[in-house]
Nucleic acid binder design. Structure first.
Length: 316
DNA sequence: AAAGCGGGGGC
DNA sequence: GCCCCAGCTTT
C-alpha cells in the first residue's frame, strides 16, 4: 500500500525532475557518492560544474586515492567546508583498501566510510544502488513537516518522530522507493522551498496539512539564530585556505598571516586549527643561526620566532 | 544535545 | 544584511 502522498509526487517527478549529471544513465555509484558529499550544505547550482570537472579528472576511487591532497584541495576550490575534500579522498582510499575499489553495497559499509553519515549512506543506497532506504535531508524534512505535521519548518534537529514519518512513507519496493526518495527531495528543492513555497505548483497541495491550516508562520522563528560570519574564525580560515590554494610555493608564516584579516591571536588560532585538521602542512622549518648567548631569554618569544620561520602549504 | 565548520546567491 | 543550502564530526 502506498501512502496517499506518494503517487502524486512520483507523477510530478516524472515531468519536473532536473536533468542533473549524477542522475544520468551513465552515472557510477562513485559519482553519486561524490555528488552527495559535495552537496552537503552546498546548493546544486554551485556543485554541478565542479562535479563535472572533478569526475572527468578522477573518475574512480583509485584515481582520487592516488592524487596529492594539495591538488584535491585546489580542485575543491571555494566549494566550502574543505574538510569534506579531505574526507572524500580518505573515503576513496578506504574504498580501494577495504572494498577493492568498488563502492560497497550495504548501508552499514557505506556508513563506515569517512565523510559518510546517515543521510549520505541512505542516499547512495537509493540513488546509486536503486535500493529502498530512508533518505532524510533538509528538503525531505521540510516537505514532511508541512504536509504531515502542519508546521512551516522542521525542528532544529532531526527527531525520532520525523524519522518515523519518513520511514512510513517510503514504499516497500526497491525501485519505487528509490524514485520516491529522489522525488520528495526534488519537491522540496523546487516547489516546497524554505522561503517562498510555490503551493500552486505542488502536486499534494490539497493534502498538505500546513496549507490547509492557512500556512501559519514558523512558531520557533524568533529562536532560530544563525552563526555569524563576519570576523569569525570560519572566515579567517577560509582566507588562509584561499591564500594557500593560490600559492604555488610554500608560504612563510609572516606572509601568510599578513594576507589575512583578524587580530594576531585569531589568525594564529586559525592557522593552528587548520594544521590540526590536516588542511595545512608546515614545511621545512628554516634553521636560523643560533642567536648565541641571549638564547635563554623568553621562551614565548623564542617559540614565536621559530614559528615565523616555518613555511606553510597545502598538505602533499 | 550542541557547537564548529565555507561560501555564495537570493531576497 | 539576513537566510538558506542533498550534513558530518567531535565534544
Amino acid at each position: 500500500m502506498l501512502h496517499p502522498l506518494v503517487p502524486p509526487v512520483l507523477a510530478w517527478f516524472d515531468t519536473a525532475a532536473r536533468d542533473l549529471p549524477w542522475r544520468a544513465a551513465d552515472r557510477t555509484p562513485w559519482g553519486v557518492l561524490v555528488s552527495e558529499v559535495m552537496l552537503q550544505q552546498t546548493p546544486v547550482a554551485r556543485v554541478e560544474p565542479l562535479w563535472r570537472r572533478w569526475m572527468m579528472r578522477w573518475p574512480t576511487p583509485a584515481d582520487l586515492a592516488e592524487e596529492s591532497t594539495a591538488e584535491v584541495l585546489r580542485a575543491w576550490d571555494r566549494l566550502g567546508y574543505p574538510r569534506r575534500a579531505l574526507r572524500l579522498q580518505e573515503c576513496a582510499r578506504a574504498v580501494v583498501e577495504r572494498h577493492d575499489g568498488e563502492l560497497p553495497r550495504t548501508e552499514a559499509e557505506l556508513l563506515a566510510l569517512p565523510g559518510v553519515g546517515t543521510y549520505t549512506a541512505a542516499a547512495v543506497m537509493a540513488f546509486a544502488h536503486g535500493r529502498r532506504a530512508v533518505v532524510v535531508d533538509t528538503n525531505v524534512r521540510r516537505v514532511l513537516s508541512r504536509a504531515i505535521a502542519g508546521d512551516a519548518l522542521p525542528p532544529p534537529s532531526l527527531t525520532r518522530g520525523e524519522l518515523r514519518d519518513a520511514a512510513t512513507l517510503v514504499p516497500d519496493d526497491d525501485g519505487t522507493a528509490s524514485r520516491w526518495s529522489a522525488a520528495v527531495m526534488e519537491l522540496g528543492a523546487l516547489v516546497c522551498t524554505a522561503r517562498s513555497p510555490r503551493c500552486d505548483a505542488c502536486p499534494v497541495a490539497e493534502q498538505c496539512a500546513w496549507r490547509r491550516a492557512g500556512r501559519p508562520p514558523d512558531a520557533l522563528a524568533p529562536v532560530r539564530r544563525r552563526q555569524a560570519w563576519h570576523g569569525t574564525d570560519r572566515q579567517v580560515r577560509g582566507r588562509i585556505m584561499a591564500e594557500l590554494r593560490a600559492a604555488d610555493h610554500p608560504v612563510p608564516a609572516e606572509v601568510l598571516l599578513a594576507a589575512v584579516p583578524g587580530d594576531e591571536t585569531q589568525r594564529r588560532r586559525c592557522l593552528a586549527g587548520l594544521l590540526a585538521d590536516g588542511l595545512v602542512a608546515a614545511l621545512e622549518p628554516l634553521r636560523r643561526p643560533s642567536a648565541g648567548a641571549a638564547d635563554a631569554e623568553d621562551a614565548d618569544d623564542d617559540a614565536a620566532v621559530r614559528d615565523d620561520a616555518v613555511l606553510y602549504g597545502l598538505p602533499r
